[in-house]
Amino acid sequence: MSLAIEMTGLTKVYPNGRGISDVNLTVEEGDIFGFLGPNGAGKTTAMKMMAGLVKPDRGDVRLFGASVTDDFVNAMKHVGCMIETAESYPYMTANDNLKLFATFYPDVDQKRIDECLEITGMLKYKHEKPRRFSLGMKQRLGIAAAILSRPRLLILDEPLNGLDVEGMLEMRRMIKQLSQHGTTFFISSHLIHDVELTCTRIGVVYGGKLVNVDDTQSILANYSSLENYFVSEVERHARI
């Protein structure tokens, strides 16, 4: 398998001591990779470096072989992102928001916009304005924007945030559906149960360090649940 993501010695430490240090990680194409850790563990920092929004102190991230630091345009060519919050223009309709994002991509037409609204369950709200949307609907619109260009890799920071149970089920179904069509996912979350049900591989981040990476199946073969595994990893590393 070829690599979608390769992090080597990735380090970014803020003056308050938060951030991540010396993360080495590879994610293969086709993986649904779950980046799991408590709030403040460094998940968003790592994802911002992957998306080129923050410069690392040391180390590098390669996406499909291209360095985010040295070859940003090629690295991001096949990548869709939703980091921290799904941003949209509140007084433009959902459709007009996506039309605006579509201007960045040569081959995204109205048919593709409708397709993305359909995939995310937002087609029926296409003429409504996001200022009236719930947090979950804003998240879905953010994902519709992230998949417009048919990316090979989707970087999603807490994509299940603010979704009701039905929304979570739909989001999980959508991730699995896109994954079957070859999309690789890198998803951060603190919602352990959803990561367990969605992700094929899992990395645990604690105190700015990547403490373990394993296949979901082999974790569940040794632990009764991902939550038990996570608690035991955190306890083990809290003692070190």
Rank of each mutant, 00 (worst) to 15 (best):
residue 1 M to I: 15
residue 3 L to I: 07
residue 4 A to E: 06
residue 5 I to F: 01
residue 14 Y to Q: 00
residue 18 R to D: 08
residue 27 V to A: 01
residue 34 G to C: 06
residue 38 P to G: 03
residue 40 G to I: 13
residue 40 G to P: 09
residue 41 A to N: 10
residue 44 T to D: 12
residue 46 A to M: 14
residue 47 M to Y: 04
residue 48 K to H: 06
residue 54 V to A: 13
residue 55 K to F: 13
residue 56 P to S: 01
residue 62 R to C: 11
residue 70 D to C: 08
residue 74 N to A: 14
residue 80 G to D: 08
residue 87 E to N: 09
residue 92 M to R: 07
residue 93 T to H: 12
residue 94 A to C: 09
residue 100 L to C: 11
residue 106 P to E: 15
residue 109 D to C: 10
residue 109 D to I: 12
residue 115 E to C: 00
residue 128 E to Y: 04
residue 128 E to N: 05
residue 129 K to C: 10
residue 129 K to R: 13
residue 132 R to P: 00
residue 135 L to E: 06
residue 136 G to N: 01
residue 138 K to V: 08
residue 141 L to M: 07
residue 144 A to G: 06
residue 144 A to L: 10
residue 146 A to K: 05
residue 146 A to S: 11
residue 146 A to G: 07
residue 148 L to N: 02
residue 148 L to A: 01
residue 157 D to H: 07
residue 157 D to R: 06
residue 160 L to A: 15
residue 161 N to M: 07
residue 162 G to M: 05
residue 168 M to K: 07
residue 173 R to E: 12
residue 184 T to W: 01
residue 185 F to S: 01
residue 186 F to I: 08
residue 186 F to L: 15
residue 188 S to N: 08
residue 188 S to E: 11
residue 189 S to D: 05
residue 189 S to L: 09
residue 198 T to Q: 07
residue 199 C to R: 01
residue 208 G to Y: 05
residue 209 K to Y: 05
residue 209 K to T: 08
residue 212 N to H: 12
residue 216 T to W: 04
residue 218 S to D: 09
residue 218 S to P: 00
residue 220 L to T: 08
residue 223 Y to S: 03
residue 225 S to M: 12
residue 225 S to F: 11
residue 226 L to A: 11
residue 226 L to K: 09
residue 226 L to R: 08
residue 227 E to A: 08
residue 229 Y to P: 00
residue 230 F to Q: 02
residue 231 V to P: 00
residue 233 E to Y: 01
